[in-house]
Structures are given as structure tokens and as C-alpha cells.
């Protein structure tokens, strides 16, 4: 079984990030929601299953992790093909391309697109029917910082117009960081369902920044105490899941010289990894939040 008992509801106008490591089941969840895979569950969009929607492209915009296009087509032609199949007027093509920052003039063929351009085109295809619901699979993949910034702005603008967005990500990047609510998948199970604010505090109360003259010994000690090493930069460890007092006393007992020990706030990506580690270890219970 790839997914087990994954159930959630998304209120209108919210951005929800579906987070999880590679292989956690994010894409499978989205594929099942869209009937691209067969499973026992069901997903309702505005009270109807995807198969029951008369004009799916006008209700749900879908961006899968790769753009599926005839490689010899231009961006315009690709969208024209989709519009023809979906019964949409060709007048929708130019605004969709404009909104993602792609040129409407004859440009390179899709087969020659960079990953970032393919992502933009895929998003344009999702926006073609001006849907009120968007399902986006890793929309920030392959985008440069400017592209991500543009995408973030677009997503905020869309939610401002009443769009509901479900996006998947393997990290709490700038795009997923816009989310109102978080769903954390691990091993095919929905481990965390909460607001972003609560999720960021899930990493057991901040982060310790610690350094020692014996880094190997320090690493062993952190592991024994159940801490999670989030990063190591020039011998300086950023650790979650440990209290400063506990670490200091243990180091003293083991005659380990700690040259630096600070309490710090967790960055979003660190909170994500800490929460992920805790949920996979079973040290954090599933949180049900507002979504």
C-alpha cells in the first residue's frame, strides 16, 4: 500500500502545502486526487469528483511536476492544443502566458525549454481555464530565485482573487513558505496537519548553535541525547530537539569542552527537517490544525 488513510479538507481561499521527502507519497496523492491512478479513496472538488466535472480545466488547474507536451510545439501551440481539447477559447492563451512571464510570440519549441521554462508553461496550462482550484506538484522546481519570487507573487495574487491552492514540495522553500496550512506526508501516511505557524514551532522549541574542540565527540553526544543535527558549518552544529541545559550538563559529565552554545530560532527549512525527523521517529504525535 502506497498511501494509507490520507484524509484532509481545504477551505476556500487557502494555500495548503503538501510536504514530504522524496518518495513520501506526495505525487501519488495528487495523481489519485486527479484519477490518474486508481485507488480506493475519493477526492471531491466543490463537492464533485474530478471525473464528474463537466469542464475539469475550468474548475481545477493542474500542474504536474513535468510539462507533458509535444516537444516540437511552441508554448502557444501547446496551450492551443489544450484549449482545443478542453473547449476553451484561444483568447485565454495570451493572459495565461503573460501571467507566468512567458513570451506569447513564437519562441523556442517546448523540447528546447529549460526546466524553469517548462515549469512556467505547465503553470500557464493550469491557469488556462481560469480555475478557482489549483493543484500544483512542486511548482518551485527548476525556478531561479527571480522565478520563485514571481511565482510567490502570482500565488498570492490568485489567493487574493479567491483561488484555493494545494501545492506539494519536498522542502519548505519560498513557495511552500507562503502556505496557510501544512500537510506532512511520510511513508504514505499523513503525519501532520496543522497551520504553518504551529508547524514551525513543532521543531521542539528552537535550535541550538553549538561548537566544541572535539566535533566527533560532540556529534556522538548529540545523537545519544536524541538531538537532530540540522546543519554543520565550519565545526558549528545547529541542533534541534535538545535543551541547552541538557546538552551543557552532559558535556560537562563527559569532560567535553563546549566553546560555543547559543539558543536560536529555527529557520523554516530547519523546522521542516526537525518536524520530519520527529514524526518519522514517532516522537511527535499527529497534530490536527485548522485545515
Amino acid at each position: 500500500m502506497i498511501l494509507d488513510d490520507v484524509s484532509f479538507a481545504i477551505p476556500p481561499g487557502r494555500i495548503v502545502a503538501l510536504l514530504g521527502q522524496n518518495g513520501a507519497g506526495k505525487t501519488t496523492t495528487l495523481r489519485l486526487m486527479l484519477s490518474l491512478d486508481n485507488g480506493s479513496g475519493k477526492t471531491l472538488f466543490n463537492g464533485k469528483r474530478y471525473q464528474e466535472l463537466r469542464y475539469p480545466a475550468r474548475t481545477v488547474g493542474v500542474m504536474l511536476d513535468t510539462v507533458y507536451a509535444y516537444p516540437k510545439h511552441t508554448a502557444c501551440r501547446h496551450l492551443a492544443v489544450i484549449a482545443a481539447g478542453a473547449g476553451l477559447p484561444t483568447e485565454t492563451i495570451a493572459p495565461a502566458l503573460d501571467s507566468v512571464g512567458l513570451s506569447t510570440s513564437r519562441g523556442p519549441r517546448v523540447g528546447d525549454f529549460s526546466l524553469g521554462m517548462r515549469q512556467r508553461l505547465s503553470l500557464a496550462a493550469a491557469l488556462l481555464g481560469e480555475p478557482r482550484i489549483l493543484v500544483l506538484d512542486e511548482p518551485g522546481n527548476g525556478l531561479d530565485p527571480f522565478g520563485r519570487e514571481h511565482l510567490s507573487g502570482l500565488l498570492l495574487e490568485l489567493t487574493g482573487r479567491g483561488c484555493t491552492i494545494l501545492l506539494s514540495s519536498h522542502d519548505l522553500d519560498t513557495t511552500a513558505g507562503l502556505a496557510d496550512d501544512i500537510l506532512l506526508l511520510d511513508g504514505g501516511k499523513l503525519r501532520v496537519q496543522t497551520t504553518l505557524k504551529e508547524f514551525l514551532t513543532l521543531g521542539a522549541g528552537g535550535v541550538l548553535r553549538v561548537r566544541s574542540d572535539d566535533p566527533a565527540h560532540l556529534a556522538q553526544l548529540i545523537e545519544r541525547l536524541g538531538g537532530v543535527v540540522l546543519s554543520v558549518t565550519r565545526g558549528r552544529y545547529r541542533v534541534s530537539g535538545l535543551r541547552a541545559e541538557t546538552l551543557a550538563r552532559s558535556a560537562q559529565r563527559e569532560k567535553l569542552l563546549v566553546t560555543e552554545l547559543f539558543e536560536d530560532e529555527a529557520r523554516p527549512d530547519e523546522a521542516f527537517r526537525a518536524a520530519l525527523k520527529q514524526t518519522t521517529d514517532g516522537t511527535a504525535s499527529t497534530v490536527s490544525g485548522a485545515s
Binding site: 486527479l34 484519477s35 490518474l36 474530478y50 471525473q51 466535472l53 475539469p56 480545466a57 493542474v62 504536474l64 513535468t66 507533458y68 507536451a69 509535444y70 516537444p71 492544443v81 489544450i82 481539447g85 478542453a86 496550462a125
Partner: peptide, 15 residues
């Protein structure tokens, strides 16, 4: 081969 069957399945989800 092109993966466009996905596009078709999204436009017409009734298999």
C-alpha cells in the same frame, strides 16, 4: 511517449 496522455486524461478524466 510524450506523456501527453496525461494532458488528455486531465482534459477528459473519464477513461
Amino acid at each position: 511517449g510524450d506523456g501527453t496522455v496525461f494532458t488528455h486524461a486531465l482534459i477528459q478524466p473519464r477513461r
